[in-house]
Write a protein that binds this DNA or RNA. Structure first.
Lengths: 199, 199
DNA sequence: GTCTATAATTAGATAGAC
DNA sequence: GTCTATCTAATTATAGAC
C-alpha cells in the first residue's frame, strides 16, 4: 500500500465499481431501457458526461453487470461438489450454489434474469445463460438415469420448473429480510425433492 | 347480425383488439419501454397517427393488455372449485386455473409478469397482482392448518416458490410446442405436492 | 380508419474547460 | 474526475387532410 493515496487527490469521486453498483440498482428499479443516463446521473449526483469517463456507453455498463452474474453462476459448475459424487448430489450442489450466487449477487442476477436480447450484449448474455441451463438439464437426466429422480416428467420441464423456483427468489428476496439464504436453499431443495404434501 | 357490415366500408383496417394483440407481441419481444410507437406502427404496416385513433396513449395500450391478464386470474378465484371443498383441493384448483390462464392468455400474462411499477397504470396492475398472491397465500395457510401440507416451511415462501414455478412457464411455454397445457398443470402439481425424488 | 407533416421533449453521447 | 454546453437522433403525441 505504498502508493494507495495518489488517486485520492481533490474530490473523492467515483470509481467504475461504485458507479456500476448504483447503475444496476436503477436498472432493476425502473428497467434498463427506462433508465436514462440522465436519471442515472441524478442518482449519482453527477453529470451525464462524468459517467462517460468511466464507461464508454450505457451498453458497457450493462455488459459488466451481466458478467458479474454469469461468472458467478458458471463458477458454481466448476466447484468440486458439482464435479464429483452422485448425480443427485451434484444437482443439489448446483441448485444450492445457484441460490447462493442469486442471494450474494442479487442485483446482478436480477438484471440478468430480465434481459430479453435486444442488443448484442444481451444476446451474448442469453447464450451463456442457456449454456448454464443445459448443464443443469444434463444433471437432471443423469439423476433420473441413476434412479434418484422420478422418470414420469420430461427432464427439460423439470429443469425449467426448478429454475422457475430458484430464479423467482430474485423477485422477493431481500438480504435484510427474515429469510436466511442457506435456509432458503434448503427450502427450495425440500420442496423440489420431497414436495409440499404432508406424509 | 343485421348491421354487421356498415363499419366494413373502405379499407379493412384494424380494430382496437387486433392492434392490441400485435402490440402485446412487440412489448414481449423487445420490452415495453424499448418498443417505440414507431416500430409498433411498422409492425402494423400503419402510421403512428393511426394507432392514436384506437388508443389515447402508449400507456392505454399497456393498461388494456394488463386488464386482460388480471381479469383472467381474478376470475379463477371466483370459480366454484376455488370456493368449495378442502383447502388443498381449492389450492390445486387455483394453481391449475393459473396455469390455464397463463397458457390461454400467454402474451398478456407474460407482459403482466414483467411490469415493474414505473407508471400509475403499472402500479395499479401490481396492486391487483399482489391481491391475487395474497389470496393464494391464504389457501396455503388453510391447507397447512387442515394438515394437508407440511408445516416446516413458511407459507409465504411456499406461495412464492409455487408462483415461481407457475409463472416461469411464461418464459418458455409455446402453444404450438409439444407440451400439453393440462399435462403441464399436472406436472406442476406433481412436483409441488409430491416432489421429484423417486420413492 | 388512415395518411403526411410536424411539434415538443428527451434520449445517448461528445467537446473542451477546470 | 467532474463540469457546462451542445449535438444529433429518436421519442411520444398532435394537426389537419383524405
Amino acid at each position: 500500500m505504498s502508493d494507495s493515496f495518489p488517486p485520492k487527490r481533490g474530490r473523492p469521486g467515483y470509481d467504475q465499481r461504485a458507479i456500476l453498483e448504483i447503475a444496476v440498482g436503477a436498472f432493476n428499479e425502473f428497467g434498463y431501457d427506462a433508465t436514462s443516463m440522465g436519471v442515472l446521473a441524478t442518482r449519482l449526483t453527477l453529470s451525464k458526461a462524468a459517467i462517460y469517463h468511466h464507461f464508454s456507453s450505457k451498453d458497457e455498463v450493462l455488459q459488466l453487470a451481466l458478467d458479474e452474474a454469469l461468472n458467478g453462476l458458471e463458477g458454481v459448475l466448476l466447484q468440486p461438489g458439482a464435479l464429483t459424487g452422485s448425480a443427485i448430489d451434484r444437482l443439489a450442489h448446483v441448485l444450492r450454489g445457484a441460490v447462493h450466487i442469486l442471494t450474494t449477487r442479487l442485483p446482478y442476477v436480477t438484471l440478468l434474469l430480465r434481459v430479453r436480447g435486444n442488443t448484442e450484449v444481451e444476446r451474448l448474455a442469453l447464450t451463456r445463460r442457456r449454456a448454464f441451463d443445459r448443464a443443469v438439464t444434463s444433471l437432471v437426466v443423469e439423476a433420473r438415469d441413476e434412479g434418484s429422480l422420478r422418470s414420469d416428467i420430461d427432464p427439460r420441464v423439470v429443469t425449467r420448473l426448478l429454475f422457475g423456483m430458484v430464479n423467482s427468489i430474485a423477485e422477493w428476496y431481500r438480504p435484510e429480510g427474515p429469510e436466511d439464504a442457506a435456509q432458503l436453499a434448503d427450502d427450495v431443495l425440500a420442496v423440489a425433492l420431497d414436495g409440499l404434501r404432508r406424509r
